[in-house]
Write a protein that binds this DNA or RNA. Structure first.
Length: 470
RNA sequence: GGUCCCAUCGUCUAGUGGCCUAGGACGCUGGCCUCUCACGCCGGAAACACGGGUUCGAGUCCCGUUGGGAUCACCA
């Protein structure tokens, strides 16, 4: 048996957990679970000007909602500055890194010049072989990159990718204020945390040869890499705010189930034959980089919506009842903290779940069950609540009042007898009743609706409808 | 601009040289079911970017073109 697999998700807390980050975390998790490995959460907050505790909390909230449970961490890089500095010092001592006194302005000017001349935007090595410190300047520490040869990246998804060392820059590993930069901290942490597989977005592929050189300089074995293709918006540009919701928690707000989002995300770039819907156990069992695609994928909200509807249909009414309550509050259908008969609510939910694509839609569809009063849709009212239906409604109301047991089957029998007596189709009676009870022309089966609404409320609504006709 | 990555229906994808007159899913669409809506079921339109090779045979391998994306900070 080889060493235990250890992977990590390493977001920087400069924003909320977004769709792309969530998928990266998910693939890390699945790979870890599939191989019985360890999944680590590490917060890359070395950019102290942009990182906030609020975002750390938001990322954790998003991961918890999606069930992306980590085994170790969260570690924070700001707690580990001493470690990075000691690694940097070691490099300087060994001549693998050097102090650079060039000012940001100087660097910027050279970059502009290089850009204008069409040359690679690369540090010119001015301070590479400097013998004496420059007085009065706080230097940065630069890593001495090899100037010839190639660096090979062996990637589980992209295959072998080679880079000419010539185009690798002498990157800054310690800023002039002594704080470490990304390329140093990732490598040090991945070494220190014994990460075996680095699974991240392929926007990092170009960083990888530099990091490999760092591993070499430290004398540590290079981990395996898996660079995931990007997620794009409908215009094929990288997914961003202007494509709509990118924050994971926005999908909570829109009434999505976490397992639906997970299922959608995993199928963006990964597949298992023709299967579309996967349980968490199946995901863990089937996951492999062999069937992760190389091409970027366009985020498609319609398919996510469909998946959500499937997950709603297949959730138990009891669970859905619990989940929908916050949305009923938000809709104003019930008040915060209001006591609900959970069993009754589950029964109501059971009649609506196959016509609700989100928890918001579910909450809205529950309104005429819960609220005391309803409003008529004008078109529905004029079409079905009229002289033709009045007598039928009266007859039904009397029948319901006299019904010994107010059950779905009892109600159905009553409907049948009225319809038979008049020699009309069921719809002739059902539609006016539907409008009387729900205000509109679309609803679950009319017997179920009556059953859920209950005798008292149903009679009140029929009475109201009959009066509205006169 | 340099470097790197990528390319099958509108979208997500199956396809690892013959099983492909290219399969599935979302969306779109015709029908069935039916008290309405939805679910469900049956059917339809819809793709191998282009050009060269290699091979008896290419969506599948190679090269080029085109197109898209990423990256080149004292950000991560």
């Amino acid at each position: 048996m080889t060493d235990k697999i250890r992977v990590r998700f390493a977001p920087s807390p400069t924003g909320y957990l977004h769709i792309g980050g969530a998928r990266t975390a998910l693939f890390n998790l699945l790979y870890a679970r599939h191989n019985n490995g360890t999944f680590i959460l590490r917060i890359e907050d070395t950019d102290t000007t942009r990182s906030t505790d609020e975002y750390i909390e938001a990322i954790i909230e998003g991961m918890k909602w999606l069930g992306l449970d980590w085994d170790e961490g969260p570690f924070r890089q700001t707690d580990r500055f001493d470690i990075y500095r000691s690694y940097s010092d070691k490099l300087v001592k060994e001549g693998r890194a050097y102090y650079c006194y060039c000012s940001p302005e100087e660097l910027e000017a050279r970059r502009k010049e290089a850009m204008a001349q069409g040359r690679p935007l690369k540090y010119n090595g001015k301070c590479r072989d400097l013998k004496e410190p420059v007085a009065g300047v706080n230097p940065v520490v630069r890593f001495r990159m090899p100037v010839e040869g190639q660096t090979m990246v062996d990637d589980l998804i992209k295959g072998t990718v080679s880079f000419d060392n010539e185009q690798l820059d002498d990157l800054i590993i310690l800023r002039s204020d002594g704080t470490p930069t990304y390329n140093l901290t990732v490598v040090v942490d991945d070494v220190d945390m014994k990460i075996t597989h680095i699974i991240r977005g392929d926007d990092h592929l170009n960083n990888t040869p530099k990091q490999i050189q760092l591993y070499n300089a430290f004398g540590y074995p290079v981990p395996k890499f898996a660079h995931l293709p990007m997620i794009l918006g409908s215009d094929k540009a990288r997914l961003s705010k202007r494509h709509g919701a990118t924050s994971v928690m926005a999908y909570y707000d829109m009434g999505y189930l976490p397992e639906a989002l997970v299922n959608y995300l995993v199928r963006l770039g990964w597949s298992y034959g023709d299967q579309e819907i996967f349980s968490r156990d199946e995901l863990v069992k089937y996951f492999s980089f062999d069937n992760v695609g190389k091409a970027a994928a366009v985020f498609n909200p319609e398919k996510l919506l469909w998946l959500n509807s499937q997950y709603i249909i297949n959730s138990t009414p009891e669970r859905l009842a619990d989940l929908v309550i916050p949305f009923l509050v938000k809709e104003g259908t019930i008040s915060e903290g209001q006591m609900m008969d959970k069993q009754w609510l589950a029964k109501a939910v059971a009649t609506q779940r196959e016509r609700s694509k989100t928890l918001i839609e579910l909450a809205q569809s529950l309104r005429y069950y819960i609220s005391e009063d309803i409003e008529y849709d004008e078109k529905a009212k004029s079409k079905f609540l009229n002289k033709d239906s009045r007598d039928l409604l009266v007859e039904l109301k009397q029948g319901l009042e006299a019904l010994p047991e107010f059950t779905e089957s009892g109600i159905e029998e009553l409907f049948k007898s009225i319809v038979d007596r008049h020699g009309i189709k069921l719809g002739k009676l059902a539609q006016p009743v539907r409008v009387a009870l729900t205000g509109g022309t679309q609803s679950p089966g009319i017997f179920e609706v009556l059953d859920v609404i209950g005798k008292e409320k149903a009679l009140r609504r029929l009475e109201k409808a009959i009066k509205a006709i006169v």
